[in-house]
Design a protein around this nucleic acid. Sequence first.
DNA 1: GCAAAAGTGTTTGGATTACACCCATGC
DNA 2: GCATGGGTGTAATCCAAACACTTTTGC
Lengths: 232, 232
Amino acid sequence: MSYKIKFDHFFSYSFSLDCAIFGYKDGKIHVLLIKRAMEPYSGEWAIPGNLVYPDEDLPIAASRILSELTKLTDVELHQGQTFGNPNRHPQGRVITCAYFALVRIDDLVAEADSWAEEVLWAPMHELPSLAFDHKEIVESTYADLRRKLQYEPICFDLLPEKFTLNEMQQLYEYAYNVEMDKANFRKKIKSIPLIHLEEKQKNVKHRPANLFSFDADRYKQLVEEENYLFRM
Amino acid sequence: MSYKIKFDHFFSYSFSLDCAIFGYKDGKIHVLLIKRAMEPYSGEWAIPGNLVYPDEDLPIAASRILSELTKLTDVELHQGQTFGNPNRHPQGRVITCAYFALVRIDDLVAEADSWAEEVLWAPMHELPSLAFDHKEIVESTYADLRRKLQYEPICFDLLPEKFTLNEMQQLYEYAYNVEMDKANFRKKIKSIPLIHLEEKQKNVKHRPANLFSFDADRYKQLVEEENYLFRM
DNA sequence: GCAAAAGTGTTTGGATTACACCCATGC
DNA sequence: GCATGGGTGTAATCCAAACACTTTTGC
C-alpha cells in the first residue's frame, strides 16, 4: 500500500483533552472555566484542557489535566465527543476529546493553578466567549448531559448530598425547561431508591421540607438484581 | 508554563478512524470486516480504519477511509467513542476514534480495495478475533447502536426500503432479546409516520403481508413542528 | 391569622397488556 | 382442508395529568 505522504509524517499530530465540569447552583447549571495565562488565547476564558502525554491513557490524562489547572481531584470524568477540525488550534493539528463531569459545586473548591490565572463557575445560559472551539465543545457536551439526566441518576451528582424533593424537581424543570406538577413528580420518583432522612430544612419561613439522599447502594443492587432502569 | 517534555515532542502522535458498519440480514445484525493485507496484523480481520490526513476533518476522513477500503460511498457516519490506550497500536501512539453507520446490506455492495484483501459481513454474535482493540470498539459501538434503536428511528436504516411490520418487530425482538405481542406492537407504532404501500409480499406460502416504508419527510416535519419524540 | 411552600388524595382519559379470534395464501 | 403467518378487537389494568385539598412553619 502507499500513503499519499510518508508514514512518519502522520506522527505529527497532537492530542489534547478538554474538561467540561458542570455544577448546579442558584437554580442554574454552571460550567467551570479558567482564564488562560498562556498562548494561544492568553487572557481568554476556556475550559480546562491540555495535551496528553505520549504514554498516558485518556482517562488518566483527563484527571491529571483537570487537577493541574483547577486543583480538583477525585472527579469522575466521562468521555464525550471528539473534535478534530484541522483549523481548531492555531499552532498545529491538535485533535481534542471532550471529557465531562457533574459535581456538587459546594463540596469542592476549584483554584487556579499551573498556567490557569483564574477560575470561574459560569452559568450555561450566559457564557462569555471562549477560546478555540470551546463554545461548541461545551454546548455539545451540555446537550449530552441533559439527555443523560433522563436515563441515569446523575441529577444526584449535581444536587447537594441532602436535598429536598422540590430541589430535585426544580433541577429537572430547569434542565428540560418544563413545569411539573408537584404531586405527580412525587409519584413518578416513587421507584427511585431514596433515603428519607429524619432531618428537615432549616431557616425557611414556611413549612420545612424533608431532606432526602440518594441510596446509591440500593440503586446498584436494583440494577444488578432486578434489571432496574432509571427513567425520568 | 513548562511541560515535562518539549512541546514539539507532543506532535508525535498519530490519529486514526475506525468504521463499524452495521447491517441486518437473516434476522441478525452484522458488522463489516476487512482482511488486512498490511502490517501490522496482516492477514487478520479488522474493521475498516486508517490514519487521518493532517489537513482533513474527521467526518471527511471517515468517509474517505471507508470508501478506500470497501468502495462504499454515501454512507451516513456517526461519531462514537475514542480509544487511546498507549499500547493499542504496536507501531506508535495512535489514538483512534470510532465512527459507525447503519446500512441496508442488500442495497450496497462492499468490495475489498486498497490494502483490504477481502470483506466480510460477520454476524455480531459470532465475531472472529479482530486486530488491535477492534473487538472492544465494535462491542462498545454495538451497545450504543442498540441503545439508539430505542430513541431514534434508525431501525429503518437497517430494514429494507419496503418492509413488513413483522420484519420491523423481529428486528426489535432480536436487538432487545425480548418477545413482543403482534397486536400490541402494531398499536405501539401507530404514532410512527409510516407509508402504507399498496403492495404486498410475494412468494410466501401464507397470507402476504402489507409493505410499509418510513415516511422520513413527515418524521422531520413532526420533529420540527410538534416536538415529536420517537420512542420504542 | 396570613403567606408560603410542603405534602397528599381523587378523578379521568389514554396507553399497555394479555388473549382471543378471523383472514388470505400455498399446497 | 389445513398449515402458516397476517391482521384486528376487547376487556382489564396501569399510568400520567389535572386539580383540589390539608399541613406546618415564620411572622
